[in-house]
């Protein structure tokens, strides 16, 4: 219980720190949103009045407090570029990105875990060597290139898949899948390669330990040795890495959404940065941070479920 309370506290502190950094970075950054909006022809009085209107002339700490209050009330201000509430924009795009990221994560776990266990069990045998070399290749592939190749060879040839745009889940589940599977796969493939190796190493590390010899000395079958004991122990380091890849997967969506023309958060982020749309950028960055921090919080809680030594600390 004490462990969970400490984790929650840590979560709050992290999010608070990130909010300060996010806010101040965009104050320091060169480029003026008002000038971008009005163009190079605008005169000083016009600029000044728009500044006042947007509240950009007030002291920084006031702006910050306002913004934080907004986060709690769901009002993240208005986007300068789209003249719409940031929260509305986020809500529109969120399902797309979350679906792609979630699906990608699912695919990674689905392949990396069984493949890693399989390779560890046949260490240095032919199938292990082949798998390890193939995944080495997978690691080296950049996702934008992989995305294009997938569009070219799968997207164009298999009727089921649509390679452009997005069909919401509420409209058609089949339609949503047809637009989401390929982007998810594009993010997942390089990740599978990295995580496969990680799972394999973690399992092999465990196999060397004394307790495994004890279990074998009890005469238990290999099935129990590997899937009960070794797997549960290996899950602790594996979980860490899966916590970390959520951040990578979220980052991966930014590029992949461009390649597949998906109207997700990533696309929004790129537009908002080029327009110096500060309220929007801040909103997106906060959203991404909170997701990643929250997932790491969940990972920490899962640790304590698996490992009794953490529970009691």
């Amino acid at each position: 219980m004490f462990y969970i309370i400490r984790r929650i506290l840590l979560l709050v502190i992290t999010v608070a720190l990130v909010s300060v950094i996010t806010f101040s970075v965009f104050q320091i950054l060169p480029g003026d949103p008002v000038r971008t909006m009005l163009g190079t022809e605008a005169d000083e009085t016009q600029i000044e009045s728009l500044r006042n209107e947007l509240g950009l002339n007030r002291p920084l700490h006031e702006q910050y407090v306002d913004w934080i209050r907004g986060i709690f009330t769901g009002d993240l201000g208005n986007s300068i570029r789209f003249s719409m509430p940031v929260s509305v924009l986020l809500m529109e795009r969120l399902p797309v990105t979350l679906s792609v990221a979630g699906m990608a994560l699912f695919i990674v776990v689905l392949f990396a875990l069984p493949l890693g266990i399989f390779a560890a069990k046949r260490q240095k045998k032919f199938s292990d060597v082949v798998l390890s070399s193939v995944t080495q290749l997978g690691m080296a592939i950049p996702s934008f290139w992989l995305g294009m190749i997938i569009i070219l060879y799968i997207g164009m040839n298999v009727d089921f898949f649509k390679i452009n745009g997005y069909i919401p889940w509420s409209e058609s589940i089949k339609g949503a899948l047809s637009t989401l599977i390929l982007p998810a796969l594009t993010i997942a493939i390089p990740q599978i390669a990295v995580k496969f190796r990680y799972v394999r190493t973690s399992i092999l590390d465990q196999m060397q330990l004394d307790y495994v010899r004890t279990i074998r000395s009890k005469g238990l079958p290999e099935r129990i040795v590997v899937y009960k004991h070794i797997l549960k122990n290996a899950l602790i380091p594996i979980l860490t890495i899966f916590g970390l890849i959520t951040a990578e997967v979220v980052a991966g969506t930014i590029i992949v959404e461009q390649v597949f023309a998906l109207p997700g958060i990533g696309q929004l982020l790129i537009t908002s940065i080029s327009y110096r749309d500060f309220p929007l950028v801040q909103g997106i960055v906060m959203y991404i941070t909170i997701t990643v921090v929250f997932i790491n919080f969940v990972v920490d809680i899962l640790y304590s479920v698996i490992d009794p030594r953490i529970r009691l600390r």
Partner: peptide, 25 residues
């Protein structure tokens, strides 16, 4: 059949009691 011997007909104790038990069970 050897598994039926291990832990059943022959029991074994190891040197390192600190690491010889599975920590998560």
């Amino acid at each position: 059949s050897m598994r039926r011997v291990r832990g059943n007909e022959i029991g074994m104790i190891f040197q390192e009691p600190m690491t010889s038990l599975d920590p998560v069970f």
